[in-house]
Design a protein around this nucleic acid. Structure first.
Length: 502
RNA sequence: GGUUCCGUGGCCGAGUGGCUAGGCUGAGCUCUGCAAAAGCUCCUACAGCGGUUCGAAUCCGCUCGGAACCUCCA
């Protein structure tokens, strides 16, 4: 029996607003799409929260046996600063600012994004398509929409005709928007406006020859509309209908609403079964965003170089911090919260290191109560993750497991008081949940053989003087090491371990 | 103005009708030569006011407060 059959997944579907049992179109295959970054500048921590959320979705679905094809795009063309069409092209704008070619901008920030993902242990998706690599597909889609009568051309641009679309289909279902009100409220279009209605949106946008990023099309040189790329690439790699589409809450309208309309306009049916939206990272209760100027960059975090940060925080502490709340809730970013997360994460990380080294000895007297508890905890991990990817609850379970692991480590409880099967289940589940599902690997504070060797020399020395009951000297060794960030810990059997805290 | 969401103990943050979430902080105890780590115990809250119910943080209404989207943002 597959894990996904044993622990059926439920997902809060933005379309219905309620939690639904997840049934893939073609099990065990799952098509997952999430909106990636527009690579016109550095990603900040708010962006990262969303990527982390869907990274965990990808990891968990894979972990429980689904064959997931995860598509996350790179937007490297067509993203204007507003929909109306008079907006500035983000990438062109940045290129002018940095005196680079647009593709240099794209390259620079794409690499930067990948580097940040690596640092935060966000897995690469199965396919990472770019808008510039799929101009042909996007043009084909525009053609289809035009053929079906849901778009019109004006001065070399093509706009999606929302009002026409609404004669046959619904628009605004995802975001719960009443478009009649929108149409009413914004009737006044200025004379320059090419759109028939303000709710119409560009699916192909004409640009002037001075625009470096531009492609030929049946309607003249231009760029694809921003909303279109996700529809075109999602369709190409996942099909005309696929299972899950995710993204940040702020993309729900208009971006995702437009995606739905385009796909329906082109193929006659809705593209996605389950829509998932991750909530915003906030600072003092307000959304973290570039335009508000309250965003934090990953490198500022690691260096502790930000006016609002007391110190540096490790990538895994931050990942843990994000996973401690549910993806659908806002999460407030602060020094206090981050500091608490760092300590909590260290505790789990230490338990992870401990259990990795543990081997089952011979069975002793079996403690049935403990055995039952451990079995329950291992199942709880899956139950909570299958319950709409509740990482916060799962971490709570992992903390309970960590306490049992520490009992084993300290010798409070002999490992043999549970049977070998139970112990192996605890070990596999804890490691699997931490590393594979949540992506919380051990913080690599030490990967230096020389340092490790040197500390071990001092540890051996301290063991000797302790055996000689020369506590003055043994304390000095410990205190001096602690002063530079190396904490020695005396075990019960006389063994000494250490942790490095910078 | 329209649409939607939220308000949980010192702090962060789960929780969708009945069972102590969890983490951090603080206090105490155990272990330890002393520490550290670890284990255990304690501090038991749901913005306010009404209502439904045998029973509500959880459902409904109102009030107050905060936020997001409606213009680019994950």
């Amino acid at each position: 029996m597959n894990l996904f059959e044993q622990y059926p997944v439920s997902i809060t579907n933005s379309l219905s607003g309620s939690k639904e049992l997840f049934t893939p179109i073609n099990p065990p295959f799952v098509g997952l799409y999430s909106c990636g970054p527009t690579v016109y500048n550095e990603v900040h921590l708010g962006n990262l929260r969303t990527f982390t959320a869907f990274d965990v979705v990808f990891r968990y679905l894979t972990h429980i046996g689904y064959k997931v094809r995860y598509v996350r795009n790179i937007t490297d063309a067509g993203h204007l600063t507003n929909d109306a069409g008079e907006g500035v092209d983000r990438i062109e704008e940045r290129a002018k600012l940095e005196r680079l070619e647009p593709m240099e901008v794209v390259q620079k920030y794409t690499y930067g994004f990948h580097e940040v993902c690596r640092i935060f242990n966000i897995l690469p998706p199965s396919v990472e398509p770019t808008a510039t690599g799929h101009i042909v597909e996007q043009i084909e889609m525009v053609k289809k929409i035009l053929e079906n009568g849901f778009a019109y051309e004006k001065n070399g641009s093509v706009y999606f005709d929302v009002r026409k679309f609404m004669e046959k289909h619904k628009y605004g279902e995802l975001s719960g928007r009443n478009i009649d009100d929108l149409l009413e409220g914004t009737r006044e279009l200025d004379a320059q406006e090419e759109k028939k209605n303000s709710v119409d949106f560009a699916i192909w946008k004409a640009v002037t020859p001075s625009h470096i990023q531009r492609w030929p099309s049946p309607w003249g040189d231009g760029i694809p509309g921003w909303h279109l790329e996700c529809s075109a690439m999602g369709t190409k790699y996942l099909g005309k209908e696929f299972d899950i589409h995710g993204g940040g809450m702020d993309l729900k309208f208009p971006h995702h609403e437009c995606e739905i309309a385009q796909s329906v306009g082109a193929y006659g049916h809705a593209p996605v079964r389950y829509w998932m939206h991750s909530n915003m990272l906030t600072v003092n209760g307000e959304k973290m965003s570039k335009s508000k100027g309250n965003s934090f960059l990953p490198r500022e975090l690691f260096a502790g170089e930000h006016p609002l940060l007391d110190k540096a925080y490790s990538p895994m502490s931050v990942r843990f911090f994000m996973l401690q709340s549910h993806y659908s809730s806002t999460l407030d970013f602060s020094n206090e919260a981050l500091g608490a997360a760092e300590k909590g994460y260290r505790k789990l990380s230490a338990a992870l290191a401990s259990i990795k080294d543990m081997v089952y000895p011979t069975a002793a007297v079996i403690n049935q109560e403990l055995k039952d508890e451990i079995i329950r905890l291992t199942a709880d991990c899956y139950r909570t993750m299958s319950d709409d990817f509740n990482t916060a609850k799962t971490l709570a379970v992992l903390f309970e497991m960590a306490s049992r692991i520490n009992d084993f480590k300290s010798g409070n409880t002999p490992i043999g008081s549970v049977d070998a099967l139970t112990f192996e289940k605890l070990k596999a589940t804890f490691i699997g949940m931490m590393e594979d599902v949540l992506g919380l690997v051990e913080d690599k504070t030490t990967n230096n053989d020389l340092l490790e060797g040197t500390i071990n020399v001092l540890i051996e020395l301290r063991k000797k003087v302790r055996a000689d009951r020369n506590y003055a000297l043994s304390d000095k060794i410990r205190d001096d090491l602690q002063a530079i960030g190396v904490q020695l810990k005396d075990g019960k059997g006389g063994e000494i371990s250490y942790t490095i805290e910078l």
